[in-house]
Amino acid sequence: MNIYVLLKKTFDTEEKIQVSGGKIEDDGAEFIINPYDEYAVEEAINLRDTHGGEVTVVTVGDEESEQQLRTALAMGADQAVLINTEDDVEEGDQVTTVKILEAFFKDKEADIILAGNVAIDEASGQVGPRLADKLDIPYVTTITAINIDGETVNIERDVEGDVEKLETSLPLLVTCQQGLNEPRYPSLPGIMKAKKKPLEELEIDDLDLDEDDVEPKTKTTEIYLPPEKEAGKVLEGEIDDQVKELVSLLKSEAKVL
């Protein structure tokens, strides 16, 4: 089976994030594999171990993304592709990424592509479904279980806390939700072996694209940290009074009504 994983490098949101000049400071930020993409890597490895084939991890990123790709290789993926846009793409959005991936997958015969449900940085959840649409294959988002039998694929997906069960077929793109699996830690021998696994580096030129082809459709106007959460208020007294107070607070303080 030809298994692909879409992986994104993100900053570790558990570490301190600093914004200055409308940009997130790269210096001092810790970078990790997007946690939802880790589920995708783990599932891809499991699928390969059950059905045979190869796992290829693909990322659109910069030179530093090699670290995350090597981690995926250390977990057990077979090969990796880094599409380095550092020199060619100044501003990008989901459209940019999908264009690049579409070009990359044009001549690949992928049986299944796994991606994260969302990336924890921008959380758009767009790249997976849009890519599937461009490649004209079915897609299922937020999956929590997958079972492949020949061409038939049975999937459970998370719908706001409930489970939806559905049947589809290969080739297919899925996006992975928490609960799908427990991603393994890359073992030390795995880390050492990852050094020798193939990691191909491409630029958009190699995919017959130039900067104009991948121009973003959106514009980032501002980046700022959410306001610090203030202490909550617990209302007291008779229920009727509480309701009245709540309504008046929603009007006067929160100004949402």
């Binding site: 990790i32 090699e66 670290q67 090597r70 981690t71 250390a74 830690y185 890359p186 030390l188 880390i191 050492m192 990852a194 050094k195």
Partner: peptide, 10 residues
């Protein structure tokens, strides 16, 4: 090195 960094993180 990348391997050292990866091990530290793991």
């Amino acid at each position: 090195t990348k391997e050292q960094e990866m091990t530290r993180k793991m």
